[in-house]
Design a protein around this nucleic acid. Structure first.
Length: 875
RNA sequence: GGACGCUUAGCUCAGUUGGUUAGAGCGUCUCGUUUACACCGAGAAGGCCGUAGGUUCGAGCCCUACAGCGUCCACCA
């Protein structure tokens, strides 16, 4: 629409919200409302990794949303029946800790005690709801085309039904079991933790070497002397000659006022070269020792309680002391008794809680576990390998799902990490003593136990514990699709296995592995066909973004400033699977510039062409740009199918900016009659860009007067603009190099850009014909007043060789003589000064005798060069 | 201790089964208001592809060793 008012600069902030609202209102995020071609298309489903309801979204989430939305839009346009399910995660311990910290900040001392379970939970729920609203708004801001009518929450009623059903099944199959074992215990938050929720912190510790008492014949080393009240054995290596005579004997030494009983055992796990080669075994407070205790049938003595204080087992003078106090006291007492042989500082990895950061103790407790190595009878045919009733273990299921390629992990190297993790996987402790989460559906009455979501009757008491948050998120792919409700699940069955799980590589173990476990177990198939692991978003120096470093880039700050499209592009470009992506504001700004470029390309086309007509004879340039676009379309499509977003985007940008804008648009200004081609190219280009930058493309699409929204416009076919002519494309490339060479020649000879020059080309054959036919274009592109073709370059003209052609420029009158003279004068002065300084250096004998020969030789060469330049300038 | 990744232009990164002269963006320098865009255009400079060996007609790519940086897992009590 010529004459229409289109702003010179694209302002994302004025259009994005309205466009999102239109999309949402049109219902196109919901697969049921898509056009017929999608209805008959293949189902394509992505489960959004549910962000934790602990606050707001960060750049990692923005990256996830950009990638998933790109995939969904691409496949939607390709005619698939696309479903993207949004959701949030209750995140159990994280959310509870967060709220607790907030309440403490508000002045409470011990919020849980002060409020009680009900009131405290109300606070958590209120906070989580507020957080969910923020998240919903942010997900929308990113332009995510997810189906809001199917939003899920890992802690909503239907998901609770799924969790309970899953728990019951696993309990019946004997893979969920209650047991008394050593677990990770967080004394700060009074709950168990899974192995994956425990991190290590590097510190130093005192390593004490001592004997339990004066009569005990073997010295041991430890950094945890206070746990030694719980020792029930001393382990040595079976081949260690020093201790051979003691193996099998039991001693009852008096350790710091408490009599203990230790048997000397031989175990190959002991390193004879470390310390004294003997190790005090504490089955209650070390998982490694606990394993050893099982092998040697050792008794367990608990000396540290759940409150983090010493128990009565540590003797009357230690009971009630904190671990730290006890450690100091033992050290002191050993020293006084003369039992301490050595004390040294050694580096130590201290186990700490992922949330909260408190020191984690290992101690035995009665908890619920998922047994990963226990065989059970399958309820259905599974993974195409096992039949109903076959005996397998969960580990076998997890391994086979990936090994068989039913789930493929990108990048490939994470397969190894995955298998390694599975091999070392221990039983998964799933019960937590926190309040916020799915309560364990188990009831007790005396010695009776009943698994049920509701009370079995009078006198039954429910297990107060809740489930590890990953238990419910492990079921996410199928619980979010209605399982175990038969009717619902039937409706969504075709969407499972989901197409791809796209998430950060940091939660491969936490989540990805557990989803495979749950899905293979419960429904006999993998949860997703592909796993795409994106990198972490880091700052421009590659550091993690953190509040303390002050280097956090917030998507919500960047979006109003640069637009969502620019933010999306900067997260998609330069990002390859598993590779961390570095983000800086300058990068976002660069892509903002690109969105504006696309806008202005469109603006030019919209303002300078008619909606219809203008179909002139196709020229060389037309056939070239069509060929280039067809090639780019095919290549971009292929790359997107392979998850090569960055590469696809770069190719598109290259086409858009270099080929289309810098060459074709310039030519269009001279040749005219290009309305049809210009509009056709734009009409193909906008869909190609849409998955990357949905807003600006949809906006332009509307301005073009299209009747269907871009979001459901079919993806361009590779030869959508007709057969491109490759021969002509190659001919045009010859022209391009001619023009480029001529431009360089102009610049090298200091031709004022505004000046028109006369150009002669010595060309023959096809090139000659090419030049003759495209004289107007060439003269426009290199600002030539006249172009002629000759057999030889005229005498005195500046020349350069371009392929088989010689380009010659008549510089007469093209150079600003005054300016050139001033410039040469300046250069001459500089060159003389440089030469002088070199001569001075070379004249210095002290320098020439000391400096290496090649340095001196190099300086002589440079001097010659400078002298040559001076000579040339003086002419 | 085990495993993995990275090292290419000043910066951030591509580089597809080894094959002509190693690419892009940003930055730098020079020039420029030519009726889409200065959030722009034209041109230029800038690389012993971490180090040292090896395989090959040929190596940024394959092999070996080493160095630096980073990540994960396990953990010595």
């Amino acid at each position: 629409m010529p004459g229409k008012d289109l702003p010179k600069a694209y302002d994302a902030s004025t259009v994005e919200d309205a466009i999102y609202a239109e999309w949402e209102a049109s219902g196109m995020f919901n697969p049921d409302n898509l056009p017929d071609r999608n209805q008959s298309g293949e189902p394509y489903c992505i489960m959004m990794p549910p962000p934790n309801r602990t606050g707001t979204l960060h750049m990692g989430h923005a990256s996830m949303l950009a990638i998933e939305d790109l995939l969904i839009r691409f496949h939607r346009m390709q005619g698939k029946k696309t479903l993207w399910v949004p959701g949030t995660d209750h995140a159990a311990i994280s959310t509870q800790v967060k709220v607790e910290q907030l309440l403490i900040k508000e002045g409470m001392k011990d919020p849980r005690k002060e409020l009680g379970r009900e009131a405290f939970l109300q606070k958590v729920v209120a906070f989580a709801e507020g957080s969910a609203n923020t998240i919903r708004n942010q997900v929308r801001k990113m332009g995510s085309s997810c189906d809001w009518s199917r939003e899920r929450y890992t802690f909503d009623d239907d998901r609770n039904v799924a969790v309970n059903a899953l728990f019951k099944m696993m309990h019946e199959d004997g893979i969920i079991e209650r047991g008394y074992r050593v677990v990770n215990w967080d004394p700060q938050f009074q709950t168990t933790l899974s192995d994956d929720e425990v991190l290590t912190k590097e510190t130093t510790a005192k390593l004490l070497t001592f004997t339990y008492d004066a009569d005990f014949p073997i010295a041991i080393s430890t950094t945890r002397p206070e746990t030694k009240f719980g020792d029930t054995a001393v382990a040595v290596h079976p081949d260690d000659a020093r201790y051979k005579e003691f193996i099998g004997k039991t001693f009852t030494p008096m350790f710091c006022g408490k009599q203990i009983s230790v048997t000397v055992i031989a175990d190959v796990a002991v390193d004879p070269t470390f310390g004294t080669g003997a190790l005090g075994v504490t089955p209650a407070h070390s998982m490694v020792d606990a394993d050893m205790a099982v092998r040697h049938e050792l008794p367990t003595v608990v000396v540290i309680g759940a409150d983090g204080k010493m128990t009565a087992e540590a003797g009357p003078s230690y009971a009630g002391l904190t671990v730290k106090e006890a450690r100091e006291k033992v050290e002191h007492q050993l020293e006084q008794q003369g039992l301490l042989q050595k004390m040294e500082e050694i580096p130590q990895n201290l186990p700490v809680a992922e949330r909260g950061g408190g020191v984690v103790e290992q101690l035995p407790m009665r908890q619920w576990f998922i047994r990963v190595n226990r065989p059970f009878a399958l309820r259905q045919d599974t993974l195409g390998k096992w039949k109903q009733g076959d005996d397998v273990t969960l580990k076998e299921l997890m391994t086979y799902a990936v090994e068989s390629g039913q789930t493929s992990i990108m990048p490939d190297r994470f397969r190894k990490t995955y298998f390694h993790w599975i091999n070392n996987l221990r039983d998964w402790c799933i019960s937590r003593q926190i309040w916020f989460g799915h309560q364990i559906p188990v009831w007790y009455k005396g010695d009776d136990t009943r698994v049920s979501p509701t009370s079995p009757g009078d006198g039954w008491e429910r297990d107060p514990d809740t489930l590890d948050t990953w238990f419910s998120s492990g079921a996410w792919t199928f619980s979010a699709l209605g399982w175990p409700n038969k009717e619902e699940w039937q409706k969504y069955r075709a969407y499972h296995p989901t197409a791809v799980l796209e998430t950060g590589y940091d939660i491969l173990f936490f989540w990805v592995a557990r989803m495979i476990l749950m899905s293979a177990y419960a429904i006999g198939e993998v949860p997703f066909k592909d796993v795409y692991l994106h990198g972490l978003v880091r700052d421009e120096q590659g550091r993690k973004m953190s509040k303390s470093l002050g280097n956090v880039l917030d998507p919500l700050d960047l979006i109003p400033k640069y637009g969502t499209d620019a933010v999306r592009l900067s997260l998609l470009m330069g990002s390859t699977p598993g590779q961390d992506v570095k983000l800086s504001e300058a990068k976002v700004e660069g892509f903002r510039n690109f969105t504006n470029k696309l806008w202005n390309i469109s603006r030019f086309i919209l303002l300078s062409t008619e909606g219809t007509g203008g179909e002139g004879q196709k020229t060389l340039a037309d056939r070239w740009i069509i060929d280039r676009l067809n090639t780019a379309t095919a290549s971009v499509t292929k790359k997107l199918e392979r998850y090569e977003f960055s590469s696809a985007g770069e190719e598109l940008r290259d086409f858009t900016w270099n080929d289309f804008a810098d060459w074709y648009l310039e030519i269009a200004k001279v040749e005219g009659g290009k309305d049809a081609v210009l509009r056709q190219v734009l009409k193909t280009l906008l869909p190609l860009w849409h998955p990357f930058m949905p807003f600006v493309t949809e906006h332009i699409w509307k301005e073009m007067g299209s009747d269907t929204p871009l979001i459901i416009t079919p993806w361009p076919a590779a030869n959508g603009l007709g057969e491109g002519d490759t021969q002509d494309a190659m001919r045009f490339e010859i022209l391009r190099s001619l023009v480029t060479d001529a431009r360089r020649l102009r610049a090298e000879n200091g031709v004022e850009p505004a000046k028109q020059v006369e150009i002669t080309l010595t060309a023959s054959g096809t090139v000659k014909k090419l030049v003759e036919e495209n004289q107007r274009v060439i003269s426009h592109l290199i600002r030539a007043s006249a172009i002629s073709i000759a057999d030889a370059a005229p005498e005195g003209w500046a020349t350069t060789v371009s392929g088989t052609t010689t380009v010659a420029l008549n510089l007469t009158g093209a150079v600003d003589v005054e300016k050139e003279r001033a410039k040469s004068a300046k250069e001459l002065t500089e060159a003389r000064a440089y030469a002088e300084s070199l001569r001075a250096k070379l004249a210095n004998e002290e320098f020439t005798s000391k400096a290496p020969a090649h340095v001196v030789a190099g300086m002589k060469e440079k001097l010659e060069e400078a002298e040559g330049k001076i000579e040339a300038l003086e002419k």
